[in-house]
């Protein structure tokens, strides 16, 4: 049951568009959207939700007014500035329980906090597991971990798991890398793209996961594209393919379709198919 995670460092390089194409080309895989803050993969894969789960992100403290003796201990001990005037600001509360354990009047309760939901769905391309973090909620890394757990159950030790990851290098990215076999980074040849690529590759290597790179919008800057190729050569990371800047990605998206479904004969589609073949060569080691 190999796990492929698609990352980018920088946002907007084309992670989701390319992951959607892979989902089509894989024919049968478990497709996972771990960008729980701003999930988009469902917009092109059009899944039908079959199972729905609440995500308990953690605990939130509540002060029981009747029991509170207004001693101020909780406010003093809270390192997240979540307590003022004997009220908990639940947006700031991290559920650490320090107030609960240190309240001399036992006036604090901890309640389960539902901070999102996640789904197991059917799509034309295989089972999809995806989720949605509530607005302004935390614990995205934990939601990613729960989604991946469900995906592994759905895969039953057999199917390939394709994960569309979040941007950046923070908590949800770290969580989406846990247990992955191969991380494909969708890089873009811009100075920001290169800078962010270096950081995400460092994170992948610190997690001892095999990395591969593809270059999207490759003709945007010949100079930055060659910087990426050279960087990968030095780090001995495979560049599995390149795709040129193509307005057809947006056209396909406007019709809620993965690009390879929208225009199955275009040069870009051929390039993505080649990329997928190269990637499968890397992934097959992990079957």
């Amino acid at each position: 049951m190999p796990e492929l995670v698609v990352l980018s460092g920088k946002g907007g390089t084309g992670k989701t568009s390319i992951a959607a194409c892979f989902a089509v080309l894989a024919r049968q895989s478990i497709i996972v959207d771990c960008d729980v803050d701003a999930a988009n993969l469902h917009l092109v894969l059009n899944p039908q939700i079959k199972e729905k789960y609440s995500f308990v992100g953690g605990l939130k403290a509540v002060i029981k007014d009747n029991d509170c003796i207004q001693c101020g201990q909780c406010e003093q001990n809270c390192r997240f500035d979540a307590i003022k005037d004997f009220q908990v600001n639940s947006m700031q509360c991290e559920g650490c329980a320090v107030c609960y354990y240190t309240c001399p009047a036992a006036a604090i309760e901890l309640n389960d906090h539902i901070s999102g939901e996640y789904y197991v769905s059917d799509s034309c391309y295989g089972t999809m597991v995806h989720g949605k973090l509530g607005i302004a909620e935390g614990n995205s890394g934990k939601l990613v971990a729960e989604i991946k757990k469900k995906a592994r159950i759905a895969a039953g030790g057999q199917d390939l798991i394709i994960i569309d990851g979040p941007p950046g290098i923070g908590c949800p990215v770290v969580s989406s890398l846990v247990g992955a076999d191969v991380a494909l980074v969708v890089a873009e040849p811009t100075v920001s793209g290169v800078h962010d690529l270096i950081r995400v590759l460092e994170l992948i290597s610190k997690n001892n996961i095999e990395a591969a790179v593809c270059i999207n919008k490759a003709d945007l800057s010949a100079e930055q594209a060659s910087v990426i190729r050279e960087l990968c050569r030095q780090k001995q990371i495979a560049v599995i393919g390149e795709v040129k800047f193509d307005q057809a990605f947006v056209e396909a998206l406007n019709l809620n379709l993965p690009l390879v479904k929208y225009d199955s004969d275009s040069v870009t589609t051929k390039n993505i198919e080649q990329m997928w073949a190269n990637l499968l060569n890397i992934i097959k080691k992990y079957y």
Binding site: G11, V36, D37, A38, M91, L133, I135, A136, E137, G138, S140, P166, P167, G168, G170, P172
Partner: peptide, 10 residues
């Protein structure tokens, strides 16, 4: 700001 709608963006 960072992208997204969770704790970092908040």
């Amino acid at each position: 700001a960072p992208p997204g709608t969770s704790c970092s963006a908040v």
